[in-house]
Write a protein that binds this DNA or RNA. Structure first.
Length: 569
RNA sequence: GGUGGCGUAGCUCAGUUGGUAAGAGCACUCGGCUCAUAAUCGAGGGGUCGUCAGUUCAAGUCUGACCGCCACCA
């Protein structure tokens, strides 16, 4: 049996993430982790907050607190939201953790020793008023190309020309507005990715054949254009110190230490081992120390693909050490909001905190995963969200469970009835479900979330189809034995639906499973599970404790469109 | 400007290497049922697959041009 290491792209620390961030990495990673656990596989699911860099510094300043304090506070906020969405991380760490300092510095030292780092002197903008160097994008001025007065030092938003801060006319600090700027020489370490390009290409040609098109096409595009060496240090205070002589005032670029956070968060996890349990970080990450059987799957949205397919692998390869490289890579396209981007600054779209205030996590998980932007960008629409909840969760799954509740309570004293033997209808049901479970399994193993969701929905629908076939509400009057057998089998479907739904809607799935007090809990995800439909013990108490999901009303949709902005914005 | 991607039923999207693939869900229509949160089950209508021109025995599926949209440019 293989062991599965799963990582989700790390959410940045500067604020609450929106639904696009959620569905682009953390949520599908969680569904996959849950599916594998359900299969009986050994899983380690790791995530963390990405905390370094200028945006964090500025957000902290805006919040009027020290950046460390800001990060601690926001890490807690994000951790709570992740719990709210039932993201089942084995550990949710922080890139500012000491473990990441040690590993990041270690990688840099290895890279330097192996000749993959080189110090180069660059011109950086220094703001005397701010008392600090300014990253390119925090220098503003007039664009030399089009005359736009608020061009950023990296690029003019008006004419889209790529700029160097030194080119700007009347440059000023975007932080303080000060024009008291000067160019200073500053030495920085460059990761010599160009020297690793051939190895990266060969690796991608090999491993990448199984990745989504969006991943390999982006990676190859960068390789085809010629992989540039990349500065991995910055003139900042907030970050991981660079352990080289002459670099005492500098830190690593956030994109260098962030993916190493996958490793360091695993170290954090190992350090948190409870009494009597031994956890080995190395056995998950070092192929010379037990990780040779690990299958490593990364989840990310497409903006992160270059770092996961090129920069981070370059870091690992350049270290000359046997660290685990990614095996399966799942990249997602964008989730838009009514056709345009989610935007934190314009407060456009729905954010994780908003979402949980409105409806339970399961409803969001279901909508997002069953409509995930796997092969192309997709659009969030409240109307579709409501349809998805009402049609699938309320109408198909919830309704099936509730139909069982009504019959069992009314006619069978709330317990699984004992009379009757299954017939051809039941054997046919089992056969259809067996085929559907096989499909479900195959789609999940292929990381096809929309397809696995559609298959799961088809399994739910089989519950309703079965009731229509046997019509127990009618049979109870003419053939009570048949009605009893039907409802016992229906409860078998309830148990199976609950079990199989765990990756998508864990809370509702748990309620379904728990509704049958004392029934044997299913395990695994194989098609033989279909037989369990016929194996509910007579006398098993059945109690859902109320409706599984609430309908989303038209009034709610209208209210939310108004509150969050709909098509017009 | 450069690069990448996209334009398939009213809506959101699937469509492996070109040949029963023109599909799914929702919406809509009709019918069944009435146990169930006006839920469910069945059937059906609907698209010259952005435009034009090519390659081919055969093209959403390849080539070129054009129109429109999006993203990225470290």
């Amino acid at each position: 049996m293989a062991r599965h290491l799963i990582t989700s792209a790390l959410p940045y620390i500067n604020g609450v993430k929106h639904l696009g961030n959620l569905v682009g990495s953390m949520l599908p990673a969680d569904a996959y982790a849950r599916f594998l656990r359900l299969s009986g596989e050994e899983v380690l699911f790791i995530c963390a907050t990405d905390e370094h860099g200028t945006p964090a510094e500025l957000a902290a300043a805006a919040a009027g607190c020290e950046v460390e304090e800001f990060c601690t506070r926001n890490h807690e906020i994000q951790a709570r939201l992740c719990e709210g969405f039932e993201l089942s991380f084995d550990h949710f760490g922080r890139t500012s953790h000491l473990a990441n300092h040690q590993l990041t510095q270690h990688f840099a030292e290895q890279l330097l020793a192996n000749g993959f780092l080189e110090s180069r002197v660059t011109k950086q903008v220094y703001s005397l008023a701010d008392g600090r160097f300014l990253p390119d994008r925090y220098v503003e001025g007039t664009c030399p190309n089009c005359g736009y007065e608020n061009a950023r030092g990296d690029q003019c938003e008006n004419c889209t020309k790529t700029l160097d801060p030194a080119e700007l006319i009347h440059p000023r600090s975007a932080i303080s507005g000060s024009t008291d700027l000067e160019l200073r020489d500053s030495a920085h370490m460059f990761l010599l990715q160009s020297k690793l390009a051939d190895r990266l290409r060969a690796w991608i040609d090999d491993k990448g054949s199984q990745w989504p098109t969006v991943a390999t096409s982006i990676a190859r595009k960068w390789l085809d254009e010629g992989l540039q060496d990349r500065g991995i240090t910055r003139d900042l205070k907030w970050g991981i110190p660079v352990p080289f002589e002459g670099f005492e005032s500098k830190v690593f670029y956030v994109w260098f230490d962030a993916p190493i956070g996958y490793l360091s968060a695993t170290v954090e996890w190992a350090q948190l081992a409870p009494e009597g349990e031994t956890r080995s970080f190395e056995s998950w990450w070092r192929t010379d120390q037990g990780a040779e059987d690990v299958i490593y799957t990364q989840f990310m949205a497409k903006d992160n693909i270059p770092f996961h397919t090129l920069s981070f692998p370059a870091t690992i390869m350049g270290s000359g050490e046997p660290w685990k490289l990614v095996d399966q890579l799942k990249g997602f396209n964008w989730l838009n909001y009514y056709g345009d981007k989610f935007s934190t600054s314009q407060h456009r779209g729905v954010f994780m905190g908003d979402a949980l205030e409105l409806l339970p996590a399961d409803t969001w998980r279901w909508y997002l995963l069953s409509n995930a932007p796997e092969t192309s960008d997709t659009s969030f629409r409240w109307e579709l969200f409501a349809d998805s909840v009402n049609k699938d969760l309320v109408g198909t799954l919830g309704n099936f469970a509730n139909r069982c509740v009504a019959q069992i309570d009314r006619h069978f004293d709330g317990v699984a009835p004992s009379a009757g033997e299954p017939g051809d209808v039941e054997r046919s049901l089992v056969k259809r479900v067996r085929g559907l479970i096989e499909e479900y399994d195959a789609h999940f193993n292929a990381l096809e979330f929309r397809k696995s969701a559609a298959t799961l929905r088809a399994i739910w629908a089989e519950g309703n189809v079965y009731l229509e076939e046997r019509e127990p509400w009618r049979a109870i009057k003419t053939d009570p034995v048949m009605a009893a057998m039907t409802m016992r089998v229906a409860l078998g479907m309830v148990r199976l639906c609950g079990h199989l739904s765990t990756p998508f809607i864990p809370a509702a799935a748990q309620r379904l499973v728990n509704s049958l007090d004392g029934a044997e809990v299913l395990s695994g995800v194989g098609s033989e599970l279909a037989d369990s439909i016929l194996e509910i013990q007579a006398g098993t108490p059945f109690d859902m404790g109320g409706l599984l999901f609430a309908r989303v009303t038209e009034e709610q949709v209208a209210d939310w469109v108004l509150r969050f902005g709909g098509a017009e914005s």
